[in-house]
Design a protein around this nucleic acid. Structure first.
Lengths: 189, 189, 189, 189
DNA sequence: GATGAATGAGGATTCATTCAT
DNA sequence: GATGAATGAATCCTCATTCAT
């Protein structure tokens, strides 16, 4: 129930933050969008910053969970990345508001919550690095710098998403997974 | 002389915005850093937004100019990209404050000036696309989607810069150019 | 039963108001201390102000009743004052929280209830004045300004209590009755 | 000049706080009374609490300075107290707003500034204690508990002021000095 | 051209009170 | 009678911008 309300607020927040940016969004805007009183938001979140932080936490967790599940399937790394990219991009194509928030508002920079967002993002990069490491160990992937590879891979994803959703040129999201995989094809043995 | 003062202010702004983020930076902070009075800034910039916008305009212009010069040298595309990447990353390694601002503050989103920043960034992507197009025409590059390629290329650059400067792991910037080029080696004929 | 709950709430209110001051105490704080829900408080009190008002009303009434009883004993005025002071100070020494509230929160000033508190306090001053008047009539006390005397007497009591409980130097409360009586010894014939 | 503005704000604050109480006074009220913008107050005070704290600091300092001067005159203690009381009460009779604030708002209780106010008040009690100590040493005063005496003396002053200004019965302030001195006449040798 | 005090609109947050369960 | 989630008015404080000196 409480979880329910948190998600209702999260959804409203994504909607308005996507349009106006985090700093230009007032708590009143979020409340209006959620059909709630401002005070009610504070029954579920301790601050405006925490609302944003929760969006990242929640979404990154979903992706981490999906990756964890994929890992259990013991796929080839290439297949793993393909599935992950396809899903990630198609989710964002369906929910561009969310995508815009995830790529543009990670740096709102202030106090604690800002650091948490960075951690959520980095945990995805760490996960990717781990995947590449597995690939190297399994001799599916050449002996590259997997740390830099993860940063590079994540950066190219984010870059395409940002451009696609901001211009917007949403159809880019469809061709993106294949394109990205083709680009890194050289690392596979 | 006026140009001189604009740059003095720009430099101060980069310094403080890098540390606190644009929205958490007050005009007073910039004035303090520049050893000027707040009022003085308004003799050179019409608003806080314009200060940020100018940072992007100025820096993107320098890069565009550098690319224009490179173009005259009639290099192979691969060499062109190599030179550009090397210079861009080494400049940012020397001025990490600037780098942080360029990758993190592009989306402050409000009114006119926000749009201008997007344009400055996109003009770089357009330039890259043009370079890839030339490569295709010259048959140095395969017949790929050059638009997506430019977005991808730019995104991966930004991703590495952001990570490298934010963590920070500045040494990543050194290996980045070679790494990026190796990754896209497949597009060259 | 209802009276029971009112006193439970009163006790909790005294506890928290003593520590944080009336304006910094939230109804939630009182509810927590009383192990009740906020809503429940409103079944017994019409407002936050009324809670405070009740504390004064209740405590002042007790003291008035004690004085009324003492009056029936037909003691010498000096003895009367001695008994009253001893009791008042010893009660507060045992319940410093209450003392702090009684001396510090009388002036929260707003609307009706504020006026009521003033009345409760003044009724004690009036009672004291009446006592002094009786003393004068009985020729136990010189012909002084009994009104000013009552104000003076009450003020010195409050001053010592406030200092003793706030510093705190609770042991002051023990020597206070004798000290006060010694000070006004001159008024007795 | 800055000092000037601080005092302008102080005066306005005394006026409105006297009428509505500190917690019911908004910064806007003070600004209106001072014919200034709210923001301007914050150029001179860091917070609402500091405004109140300054009132106490400033007024207590004046009284301390007056007492220091009196001390140089090397008067008999009785004469000293007489002069001090007369001046203090007459100042408050002329500026009842100030008096009301000084006796009623000392306990607003929050964080740092609250503690400072207590210190300002206690410094006056300490000064009085020192005076009584001198009296004892000079054998003008009997060997009483000078600490308790100072607390008692201060309390009775405050009590009369509060009653006189709150009722109001301002004429009480006129007879108060003589009355108080008569009451403590017994301590003089 | 430089200054920095004054301005006041704007927004996050709090909390007494209500009322459906 | 008890509960506690929902409400939204109220208020402190910030800070971009102006303008008289």
């Amino acid at each position: 129930m409480a979880q329910n309300n948190r998600n209702k607020i999260k959804k409203a927040a994504v909607e308005v933050i996507s349009k106006k940016g985090f700093f230009n969004t007032r708590m009143q805007d979020i409340a209006d969008e959620a059909n709630l009183a401002v005070g009610t938001i504070y029954n579920y979140f301790s601050s405006k910053d925490e609302v944003l932080s929760y969006i990242f936490k929640n979404e990154m967790q979903r992706r981490m969970e999906y990756m964890s599940e994929l890992k259990k399937e013991n796929l080839k790394i290439k297949e793993f990345l393909n599935k992950f990219l396809t899903r990630h991009f198609s989710l964002l194509a369906k929910n561009p508001h969310l995508g815009r928030v995830l790529v543009r508002e990670k740096d709102f920079s202030r106090g604690e919550e800002s650091g948490k967002i960075k951690e959520h993002m980095n945990s995805m990069i760490d996960m990717l690095e781990m995947i590449f490491d597995i690939g190297v160990k399994r001799e599916e992937i050449k002996a590259i710098n997997t740390h830099l590879m993860a940063v590079y891979f994540f950066g190219s994803m984010q870059g395409i998403i940002e451009y696609a959703l901001t211009e917007p040129e949403i159809e880019l999201l469809e061709s993106a997974p294949d394109f990205i995989l083709a680009r890194i094809n050289d690392i596979f043995i």
